[in-house]
Amino acid sequence: RAAQGRAYGNLGNTQYLLGNFSKATAFHKEVRSVALLPEFGDRAAERRAYSNLGNAHIFLGRFDISAEYYKKTLQLSRQLKDQAVEAQACYSLGNTYTLLQDYERAIEYHLKHLLIAQELGDRVGEGRACWSLGNAYVSLGNHDQALRFARKHLEISQEIGDRN
């Protein structure tokens, strides 16, 4: 069963990289089914399936479905105590809610991402969070906060030498 799950995962990832997002989701749903088998029960594999399903639905234009899968990813990453994955799930949720034009919720998740990036000392992640937060605050017309995060983004970009 473990090998079968891995094979489904590899097929899903290959279809995804080929741009066949619908086929990718079918394989990643198989991964989830195998991971959920009571005699098997692999939370890490289940978590990976949810992130991959979230990603594929972005390119299928189903941002609402992506948000649900990313929330499951977030929940499992917390159970598995994997902070890097937790940060990534928050970042994905922030971007997904931006696509859904729900900027308040986007800010909520980008702030969560920012906190974890700071905890982990991830300056690149922190810079991206500030960039995203600046944009989201502009969308809400909150220019004071937008400026605050744009300044922070500039400071971090200079520090890490990101001229772009």
Partner: peptide, 26 residues
Amino acid sequence: VERTHLIQVDSVQRWMEDLKLMTDCE
């Protein structure tokens, strides 16, 4: 409004470009 929208899309666009090459595997 249009300018705001363009700025907004920028950081999400960058995320989506990275995402297209990102697979979560063992």
